[in-house]
């Protein structure tokens, strides 16, 4: 799943996105349970996402994923590599 060498621009973990930034998911290297959850909400390689805000204490952050706004903890989306 994880092969970053064929991407034109380098990927970054999703949790580093700032409010308002858009990105495309390139790879998910998260383990089992969170991986299934992310797939359920439609987060797979190729999905476009946008960081729409952060909670008052900085974590979790809210992302617009396929029309819905989903809150994810930084810890959980560290394993989601996105390309800005």
């Amino acid at each position: 799943m994880l092969s970053t060498d064929n991407f034109s621009t380098p990927t970054v973990p999703m949790c580093t996105l700032k409010t308002g930034e858009c990105a495309t998911v390139r790879a998910i290297i998260a383990p089992g349970s969170i991986r299934r959850r992310l797939q359920d909400i439609g987060l797979i390689p190729g999905t476009e996402i946008r960081c729409v805000g952060r909670s008052p204490l900085g974590d979790p952050a809210a992302y617009r994923i396929r029309g819905a706004v989903i809150a994810l903890r930084a810890e959980d989306c560290r394993g989601i590599l996105v390309e800005a």
């Binding site: 809210a62 706004v69 989903i70 809150a71 994810l72 903890r73 959980d76």
Partner: peptide
């Protein structure tokens, strides 16, 4: 350890 967390913020 805390498990993974996804929470939908509905409109």
């Amino acid at each position: 350890l805390p498990s993974s967390f996804t929470l939908e913020l509905p409109p």
